[in-house]
């Protein structure tokens, strides 16, 4: 029997209303397990960054509570913040500092003694070693993003927040970063990621949370989500065009293309039976023949778009 472990991050009834009256978070409840990668998806202004900012201590919650490893983020802020690393969305760096000194500064700020070997490893992993003595203002946007990641990793966090970490970065950094994410996950680090690149979430996340208008619409294991809400379509290229769907086939969820040359059958990937075999039998009985058949499956992006549209 597997031992049941307490979540590393527990969010209860969390609300945030800004001074202007805008409610950015509405009653958020979420448990995040140790060592998992959870992707928070949501359109711009959904509340993702506010949620991260509250947990990290940058924004004050209006009500509710957040615990990290059982410690309250307000009462035990030293414990919780020392466990957390944050890569912010904006490229906010100390322009006049060198790469090495700004990363070393972060480690000290988070209460860790100097460990040049660790900083060297982080910089090498992020392909920043050659730039360690360069002033940050001389670096490209992608390099600055690497510096922010290095700063967050400098103090060896056990919970890492990556707020849109791949926004505006090249393929090389993405690859480096996902390699590091894999390494961190293997080392037991919990990773909370927000991204607009849904294919990234689809590729690396264990669970997916969808936020819209400050509400957490759902949190689900990625595979279950794809299976539960994912759809598959079978498109049949007919040998003879139809003017309408025959009454014998009206029990199926069928669509006829405008030119009458294609029949499109949509079914849920989560169902026990797809109905495809029965459909093909009934088509034969109705004397409808097809030349070709192809299938498509909805991506996480399609699921996300549908969820957001439904909740809006």
């Amino acid at each position: 029997m597997n031992a049941v472990t307490d979540p590393i991050l527990t969010i209860r009834d969390l609300n945030k209303t800004y001074a202007g009256g805008f409610q950015a978070l509405k009653n958020i409840n979420l448990d995040i397990n140790e060592g998992e990668i959870i992707a928070l998806l949501g359109p711009n202004g959904a509340g993702k960054t506010t949620l991260i900012s509250v947990i990290c201590g940058i924004v004050q919650a209006s009500s509710g509570s957040v615990q990290v490893a059982g410690f309250d983020i307000v009462k035990n802020y030293r414990k919780t913040r020392s466990m957390i690393g944050l890569v912010p969305q904006e490229l906010t760096t100390d322009s006049f500092e060198s790469v090495w000194s700004t990363v070393a500064f972060s480690r000290g700020l988070f209460g860790k003694s100097a460990r040049p070997d660790h900083i060297e490893k982080v910089l090498k992993d992020l392909s920043l070693w050659e730039k360690k003595d360069d002033m940050i203002m001389t670096l490209s946007g992608g390099m600055k993003r690497r510096v922010l990641i290095a700063k967050a990793l400098s103090h060896e966090p056990t919970v890492l927040f990556l707020d849109e970490p791949t926004a505006g970065v090249d393929v090389s950094l993405r690859k480096d970063m996902w390699n590091i994410v894999e390494e961190l996950k293997a080392a037991g680090v919990t990773i909370i990621l927000t991204t607009h690149y849904i294919e990234e979430a689809e590729e690396i996340a264990d669970r997916v949370g969808v936020i819209n208008n400050g509400q957490l619409i759902l949190v689900e294991e990625k595979t279950k989500l794809m299976s539960k809400l994912g759809k598959k379509q079978v498109t049949l290229d007919l040998t003879e065009s139809l003017t309408a769907i025959p009454s014998a086939l009206c029990d199926y969820s069928l669509e006829l293309s405008e030119d009458g040359n294609q029949l499109i059958y949509t079914f849920s990937t989560g169902g026990d039976r797809t109905g495809v075999t029965a459909l093909l039998d009934d088509l034969k009985l109705a004397n409808i023949h097809f030349r070709d058949l192809n299938t498509t499956q909805s991506s996480l992006e399609d699921i996300f778009v549908n969820l957001v549209e439904e909740s809006s």
Binding site: I84, L86, P88, T92, T93, S106, L109, G111
Partner: peptide
């Protein structure tokens, strides 16, 4: 002004 204050605010410092 430049936004780097986020680090001090999120650090375990009194």
């Amino acid at each position: 002004f430049v936004g780097t204050v986020y680090e001090v605010l999120s650090a375990p410092v009194s």
